[in-house]
Amino acid sequence: MEELYFLNDGTYELDAGAYFGIIPKALWSKHFNDNNNKIRITTNIPYLRINNVNTTIDAGIGNSFSDQFKKIFRPEKNNDISRSLTEDYHLKSLDNIILSHMHFDHAGSIFSSSLLFKRSQIIMQTKELKAFRHPNNFTRGSYIHKKIYGNIKALEGTAKINGNISAVNTGGHSEGHMVILFNINSKKYMYGGDLFPSAFHIKPYYIPAIDSYPVQTMKMKRKLLKKAINENISIIFNHDTNNLMAKVYGSTDKPELEFHGN
């Protein structure tokens, strides 16, 4: 049995300059409402149930916020993946958490001592684990500095996780960022992580200012867009409040989107 659901772990505010980088406000303001130059973004999380193995791709923002975090990011937990998994899907423990990367808005629940998460296998890139453990002045604010629960499985580059799921080590946004490809009921999906945080960011050169290696991001976006177009893959946007996913057509430099549900 193969099932795909979508969870949400709430919203938070991010500085517009961080989210849009060099994209002029005259362009992005047509699509986004800003509050004192802050953009409220969401956390869309795929939940896969394949042969009774339960997996999420990324782990949301979690539930442990310092006063400083609340002041800067103003999180709103109108949705919670922990509550959804236990109450809606009746899980006692989650088998796998695949992390696109370890920034605070993607890895929050791996720092939870809840039985739901602490027995999970946490899958990430070795490079990302190293970046988390040894941040620099540019990256330090993006990571949560707490104990990781669960069992870590570190990948070395692009790898197949199981028969349905594979990971492409992209770099770009962070040292060990990866995009996750998976098949459910003969349909192909791509979880773009922060290479494609929203539908607006679909163009290769629409890159957030917080990317550690923006030229690498642009290179990988072109490569992944070509794959999505040629193989009829739906791209999932993890931070888009209005558009969960879309099929891509056209060309890599001028991609067009057709929005749809799962």
Score class of each variant (00 low, 15 high):
residue 178 M to W: 03
residue 229 I to D: 03
residue 151 N to L: 09
residue 219 K to M: 12
residue 125 Q to Y: 08
residue 201 H to Q: 11
residue 124 M to H: 06
residue 149 Y to M: 00
residue 199 A to S: 14
residue 170 T to E: 05
residue 242 N to P: 00
residue 124 M to D: 05
residue 167 A to I: 08
residue 144 I to L: 15
residue 155 L to A: 10
residue 194 D to C: 09
residue 221 K to D: 01
residue 135 P to I: 12
residue 232 N to P: 02
residue 185 N to G: 07
residue 200 F to M: 07
residue 155 L to R: 07
residue 122 I to G: 06
residue 150 G to Y: 00
residue 133 R to L: 12
residue 128 E to F: 06
residue 156 E to N: 15
residue 217 T to Q: 02
residue 238 N to E: 09
residue 206 Y to G: 00
residue 158 T to E: 12
residue 136 N to M: 11
residue 242 N to H: 12
residue 125 Q to P: 03
residue 224 L to V: 07
residue 170 T to Q: 05
residue 173 H to M: 15
residue 214 P to T: 07
residue 205 Y to S: 09
residue 179 V to Q: 05
residue 175 E to R: 07
residue 214 P to I: 05
residue 129 L to P: 01
residue 222 R to T: 08
residue 233 I to H: 04
residue 160 K to T: 14
residue 235 I to R: 00
residue 122 I to M: 02
residue 173 H to Q: 14
residue 161 I to E: 10
residue 114 S to N: 13
residue 134 H to V: 09
residue 180 I to Q: 06
residue 198 S to G: 09
residue 187 K to I: 04
residue 115 L to S: 12
residue 197 P to C: 08
residue 237 F to D: 02
residue 164 N to V: 01
residue 201 H to A: 11
residue 170 T to W: 02
residue 135 P to Q: 11
residue 215 V to Y: 08
residue 245 M to W: 04
residue 132 F to C: 07
residue 245 M to V: 00
residue 114 S to L: 05
residue 119 R to G: 08
residue 213 Y to T: 06
residue 138 F to P: 04
residue 167 A to M: 09
residue 207 I to G: 00
residue 204 P to F: 04
residue 181 L to H: 13
residue 169 N to K: 09
residue 188 K to A: 08
residue 236 I to W: 02
residue 160 K to Y: 12
residue 160 K to Q: 14
residue 135 P to Y: 11
residue 137 N to S: 14
residue 183 N to T: 15
residue 231 E to Y: 08
residue 119 R to H: 15
residue 160 K to C: 10
residue 192 G to N: 06
residue 168 V to K: 13
residue 162 N to H: 11
residue 163 G to Q: 13
residue 123 I to A: 03
residue 150 G to L: 01
residue 248 V to R: 02
residue 137 N to V: 12
residue 146 K to T: 13
residue 249 Y to C: 07
residue 175 E to G: 06
residue 158 T to A: 14
residue 121 Q to R: 14
residue 138 F to K: 14
residue 153 K to N: 13
residue 205 Y to N: 14
residue 246 A to W: 00
residue 159 A to S: 15
residue 169 N to T: 05
residue 142 S to C: 11
residue 168 V to H: 10
residue 233 I to Y: 00
residue 154 A to Q: 13
residue 151 N to V: 07
residue 207 I to M: 01
residue 191 Y to L: 05
residue 235 I to T: 01
